[in-house]
Structure formats: C-alpha cells, structure tokens
Design a protein around this nucleic acid. Sequence first.
DNA 1: CAGTGGTCTAGACCACGAA
DNA 2: TCGTGGTCTAGACCACTGG
Lengths: 234, 234
Amino acid sequence: MTLDQRIRTEVEDRIRSGKWRPGHRIPFEHELVATYGCSRATVNKALTALARSGLIERRRKAGSFVAHPHVRAAVLDVPDIGAMIMARGDHYRWELTASRQDMKPTKFALEMMPDADGPILALAGTHHAAGEPFGAEHRLIDLTTVPEAADIDFSTVAPGSWLLGHVPWTDARHRICAIGADKPTADRLEIAIGAPCLQIERWTWRLDRPVTFVRQTFPGDRYDLVAKFTPQGR
Amino acid sequence: MTLDQRIRTEVEDRIRSGKWRPGHRIPFEHELVATYGCSRATVNKALTALARSGLIERRRKAGSFVAHPHVRAAVLDVPDIGAMIMARGDHYRWELTASRQDMKPTKFALEMMPDADGPILALAGTHHAAGEPFGAEHRLIDLTTVPEAADIDFSTVAPGSWLLGHVPWTDARHRICAIGADKPTADRLEIAIGAPCLQIERWTWRLDRPVTFVRQTFPGDRYDLVAKFTPQGR
DNA sequence: CAGTGGTCTAGACCACGAA
DNA sequence: TCGTGGTCTAGACCACTGG
C-alpha cells in the first residue's frame, strides 16, 4: 500500500467508524506531514482524493472537515440486455417486429426527441430469454447523428447491442416507472392487459446531438433493477 | 483554469469528439511535458484523473490509451422523500400507522435482514404529498446497530429522514421492480388492487452491520426515478 | 493579515512489462 | 533490457478567506 493510500484509508476509517463525526475538523496538512513524516504533496494528494469523493470538505484558511451527508448517489449498472440474459445462462433472442425510416420526425419522435430534425430510424422488437418474451423495446435512432445505423440489419443484431459497441455517447438520462401493460405490449409479452410492468426510458446524446431514445417494458415479475452503492456525501 | 485542468479537458475533448478513438495511444507523459512546457507531475495529475474516471487506460512501458466502452454506470439520486416532495412545492406529511419493537427478529425480518440477531424496530407508514397518499413504507431498523432509534418518536419524523441525518452508513443496495398493489397497500394508497406500483427496496449497512431495510411502494403514476449520467468507460 | 489549501516545479527512485 | 507510469520529495508562489 502506498503512503497516500494509507493516509486516505486511515482518515476514511475514522470517518466511517463515526470517530470523526460530520463537521469534525481533521488535522491540517502540515500536521499530517509531521504525523506521517512525508511531504506535503503526498498528504495533499490523499486529502484531495477524499474531497473529490465527497467524504470531506476543504476550506482555505479554515482547514478540512468531515462532510455532512447530502445527496446520495447510487451506481446502477445498465448492461446490454442480451449479454445480461446470456450471462445468467439463458438462451437469448432478439426479434425485430417493425422497422421504419422517416425522413422527418413523426409526432412520437418529436415528443421523445425534441432536438431531432432530420431522418429518424424507428424500431420495435422483443427480447426473448429462454424462449419466452422478456421485454418489449421501442427505439428511435437519429440518423443525422448516427448515419451508419441506416445500413445495419437490426433483425440480426439488437439495436442496443450495436449502438453500445459502435456509437460513442457523452450523456444519458434514465426514467424508470411502473405502468400497466397496454394491449399491444400485453400481446407481445404474453401477459394480461394492465399487468404491472417496469418501464425504462433512456435518452442518449453525443455532444448535444441526440443519439437514441429507447423505451423498454418488462413484466414486473421478470426484471429487477439492482444497484449497489456507497455514500458520496457524509 | 489551471494547467492540469487544461491538459485534462484538451485530451478529453479529443476523445469525446471521436478524434482519438478507443484504443488510440495518447502522447507519453514526457511528450505532453514538452508540449505544455510544464513538469511531469502536472501532466501525471491530469492523466491520472482521466484514468480514474475511466476515460483512458494506462499501462507501464506501453503508454496511455483511450479506453474501450465497458460497463455503463448511472448515477441515481435517491433523496429524502419528504425533502423531495417539499422541493417540488407540495405539502408533505408522514403518517405512522404501525410501530413494534421485537426482541428477536420476526420471520419477515429474518428474511429481509438475515444478518440481524438482536432487537428490531418494525415500522409502517404512509408518505402524503399535497394531502394525497404518495407512497407506502415498511421499515426495519436493527436496534443493535442503531440503539438510539428506540427512543425516537417516529410519528413526528419519518424514519428515513431521521436515519439520513443521524446514522452513518457505508454500503447500500437497491432493488427496483414493478408489482401490482396487494389489498393492504391498495387501501393505504387509495388505489385499485393490482394497480401497477413501483417498489423500491433498500438495504443499508454500516461496517458489515445491518442498519435498516425499507420497502417503499409508489403508485406507478405518481413516482418516477430519474437518473442522469455520463459514461464511465469509453 | 496571516495561515490555509491549490497548484506547480525539478528532480528522484522504483516496479512493471513489452520488446 | 530499458522506457513507461507510479509514487514521492522539498521546495515554491499564490489566491482565498477567516479572524
């Protein structure tokens, strides 16, 4: 273990154990320099890392303080659906049920991707796990941002998998909610109308250009989102 | 803007714009030292930050490379429900409907908090927004880890708010799913039995000791989870 | 105004790993 | 082998800000 790691973990341990409560002033840099017998750069590196992770706050002239709990952030893995299904040992299949290329955004596309103004590729399909419908997907791809998508055969590769591997993106936004299945979705997923479903909508951008919008609908009993995380602010 | 920030953003811009594709070798540290006319420590600081954020990978002797997209991580804000409701301008009220202290974990508690072995505080209640039921909550608090909780009046303060401000935690896990409302939940939320609901379960630990388990159930039309994020690996 | 953290320098030694 | 990144040092100057 390096020295700056050691300083960081020793400070962190005192905070996580509650020995240093929120608001407590931790030793000045020059005090830690004396304690550890190292240079100020090393102490500074350790404390700067703690500040960046949100565990402490630093104020010039005043010192460094254990941060108060503030916003809690969860790290939520959102893997490729096909990879996820295969990872748990089930057979995966993507079924493309509709594909249409519009030169101008349709009403639905304008609503979901208000920044789009050129041609849009609209896809619909179903993810199958172990032969059973697993989730329904509606997707819009902005062909101005991703012209290559026009030439891809999305009946053989799921659009999510292809985009994941071929299109860099810089920002994304998720919306997660519970809805009752409507008639077309219920038919595609072979469930009852009104059955509770988890719906995930994701918008993806690349440098302020919209890349794709996707709405995925999963029967409530077939899909859980799981997130493990540690606090950002204390 | 500091020099290391400038180096970082200039490298980052080239990557995000696609000029440097995944796998591209970025200049060696000593080359950037010559380019920017600064010391190696400054270049190292910038590149180390980029590596920590997952944008580049660094290999001794070989150099630094633009990372390939790998796992996508979403940062999901999970604020205090009361604070969230008040933040959007609605009146918030917490209604405690049940409170029980068990010296030994009940069957339900053992299922949800298998590590618990001592007294458990079991609470149930409803969050109200603008006078309407907003979400139902079932909560277990491990009184061995959080003995202070035994003396708190949870009819006046929501347990989530109190725990958030008083109990440090080190790990948490979320599970998010869609379910149909059962009879008791439907009654409390004033919705139909079977109506789609978003259910969030959260386990919280402090240094391997269980702190609390909570199951929150929200009518599907009243609660969305929203997550904004940027990619970790490119 | 004085002391803190923020940043930077010009060196150094070392471990790793590709050649 | 030997160039790379990883880490560290002993200094320095400065901006900010609390007393």
